[in-house]
Amino acid sequence: MSLFLFIIKDGFAGLVRSKFTSFLTMITLSLAVLLLLFYFLISQNILLKISELKSRVTIEIFLDPDLDSSDIENFNRRLQKITGVDSVRFVSKEAALEKFKELFSGDYVQLIDENPLPASFQVKLTAEMNQAYVQKIIAEIKSLGAVDEVVYHRKLLSALNQYYDSLRRIFVGVGLGLALLSFFLLWINIKLTLKIKERAIETMKLVGAKPGLILGPFYVQAAIEGATAGLISLLAVRLIFRFFRFDELFPAGVNFSTLNWAVGVSLLFSIFTCYWATRRLV
């Protein structure tokens, strides 16, 4: 058996030999990854929801009342060519009046004998609706001419952008905190395992085992524990979502296929923690 195979085999054997501590490590790591997964899902959902709200914000372009239908058609064509414009909806003077009557159903509405409302275009943008981007597109729209006024919910958009940025910062910060806490828990676990094996490690050193040979099985064990914990946490998320309803907490829904990274993260996390715990051991 080559040394490499011996290390792999001894890593697997280590799992069996230290069943309890391995089980404890896997449970700790699974819970940590599960916590991170839920945290990721919640933050992803909130940010998606804000993005969705932002995408609903439209730019309204009120046209010059003197434009005829061919001018409007021409304007429409040029408007759609602007980079960043996703969809364009034309609202005629008549449609605007109908909408007005729907919103303000009072006697005074009947007194309007001539339609004072201008025709308009409602524009949705493709990319991120941040202030600078919207301002740039508005400038382009205005440069087309034939525009009386351009209106959008500047304050709402500004507030949404502010929320989005603040929440993203908070989520990253708390996420890192959680990762650090998980690392610490796992580190303690591995240190305890090493404490139990301290004497055996010392003996291995005295009989001439090289550091790689002593630590190799620990890394193999950590890799197995990490991957298993990742899989357990993925399975747990699916089961939790199957048996409990979280519609209010996750209005944007959950795409499980985007969570597979958890296995890789758990694996790397476990190996890194093992490295950190054993770096001064031999």
Partner: peptide, 22 residues
């Protein structure tokens, strides 16, 4: 100073494994 998590055979075999014996 025997390795308590391995049997007697493995304790002796260990020193041979680390020196790359077949």
């Amino acid at each position: 100073r025997l390795l308590e998590d391995r049997n007697i055979y493995e304790n002796i075999a260990f020193v041979l494994r680390i020196t790359g014996h077949r």
